[in-house]
Each structure stands twice: as C-alpha cells, then as structure tokens.
Design a protein around this nucleic acid. Structure first.
Lengths: 135, 135
DNA sequence: CTGTATCCTACAAGATACTG
DNA sequence: CAGTATCTTGTAGGATACAG
C-alpha cells in the first residue's frame, strides 16, 4: 500500500476574493489614486498636485504597480514638453464602486465627528508616522 | 496694522473621507475580520480558526483597535471556560457594503484568472513576505 | 480559553538629489 | 515634465513564550 504523500506545492494560493482585490488597492495612496483617476485621465504632475503630499517616488511606484496589475494604462503623449497620461482601464473602473463605498462610509464618519467630536483640542494624538494607507 | 499670522496648529486634519474609512480597515487581516463578523458574533478562538494564519497577537491587536474605533463590541461571557464574543456595532455594519464591494471585484478577478491564467506554473512569483493586507 | 510580553526583521515610504 | 537612484527609518507583523 502506497501512502498518500503530502503535496508539497503550496495549497493553491488561497485566492480569497478579498485578498485578490486588496492586492490591487493595498499600499499607501493607492485608493486615492484610483479615485483621482475615476473621472478622467490625468498626467503625472496633475496627480502630484491632486495629492500634494505624495512623493514622486511613491507616485511612480504606485502607477507602475497599477499598470502592471491592469488597473490603469500609461500613455505617452509626444508633445513638448512631453507628458504622460494615466487612465483607468475597464478593470480599473470596476474598482470605482469599492472606492465609492469607502467614501460613503468615510463621509458618515465625518458627520459623526462633526456632531460628536471624540477628541479634545489639547490632546491631539500624534500623527502616525507611517500609515499604510494614505489619501 | 497687524499682519495676519500663520496658524501653527496643524491645518485641520484632512478628514478625507477615504482616509477616515481606511483608518478603520487598514492593517493586515482587518477587512477579513469584519467580513467574518458580518454574519453573527464570534468568539476569539472561532476567529482564530476562521483565519488560521493570523497570530494571536495580531488578532488581539486588531480586535482592540476595532473596538476602540467603534466598529465592534467585546462581550465577556462568564461561562466555563470563559469566552468572549465579538460583534459588529451598527457602525461596523456600515462597513459591510464596502467589504461586499471588494469581494465582488475579487470574485471577478478570480474568474479572470481561471479563464486566462496570467502566470505559468513554473514561474510562480515568490509570495510577498509581508503584505499589508491579509485575508 | 483569551489574551500579553518580548524579540526580531523585512519592508514601505520619506527625503533628497539627480537625469533624459 | 516625468521620472530614477540612494539612503534612512519606523513600524507592522510574525514567532514564541507565558499568564489570568
């Protein structure tokens, strides 16, 4: 009798739907970036001013990743000065409902804050140095 | 004439709706945790087996944070052995549409993978050592 | 069962400077 | 304008052990 051996190959990467989608939206600024692009295509420098606190490095990194994941396209416009336009793909547009759901909740949270502030002026918690998500 | 001085207090924390909501869902396993709780309350150990790869430390940390943020409640049941039940608050339930939107997209992504695999068996990308989001 | 307490490391993101 | 190249740092999360 041959015993059944353990399968060494990793057990079919979970492919949890939540994971799969979060892989696209994870990382600082990513969700916001998709949000900024949800209206119309934008150029690199436009995105930089849409999101003033993002660094060129991170913006570039996110755009590359999102392009690789099929969320957006990068289109070089041969003008002078040259510019590059980023636009959501069809797949990227599927993320819009997600962003909108998030924004919906976010707005309710803001409303709550307005009517019942949780924190007192003097005791502002120190801003978290490096959040995983930025917007 | 007195000149208007700059206001030193930080400029009204952005309160971007996206940020506000992501503060709740950011961090590894968080979204999945909310998902697991969206049906009915669950105990610590149940959550541990719902999400086998989460460590006690992180699970505990997430639950604390979510409780502090008003997303869930912690209820100690004086039984023997004692147990603790976690349940979404009303505010936590508002996050369910977000999770569902994410899952929707995630499922579409999976479908894509099934019908048009992007990666060949031999070249599995090395698993990212420490993802910011886990499920 | 339900957690804390430590220790450790990879990595993400910031700053800054530079290039085509 | 649209990015790279380096360097540095904080910190999130994993492992493990222990406690009420």
């Amino acid at each position: 009798m041959l015993r059944r051996r353990k399968n060494k190959t990793p057990p079919l990467p979970p492919l949890c739907p939540l994971t799969e989608c979060m892989k696209l939206l994870g990382g600082a600024w990513t969700a916001n970036l998709v949000w900024r692009l949800s209206g119309e295509p934008r150029r690199f420098s436009e995105l930089r001013s849409d999101i003033p606190r993002i660094s060129a490095k991170v913006l570039s990194a996110r755009l590359c990743a999102l392009e690789k994941n099929g969320v957006l396209t990068r289109h070089v416009v041969a003008s002078s000065p040259p510019s590059v336009e980023y636009a959501l793909t069809e797949m990227g547009r599927e993320l819009i409902p997600v962003i909108e759901a998030i924004v919906q909740v976010g707005m309710k949270l803001q409303h709550r804050v307005e009517v019942r502030p949780r924190s007192v002026p003097g005791s502002a918690p120190r801003p978290r140095a490096r959040a995983t998500h930025r917007t």
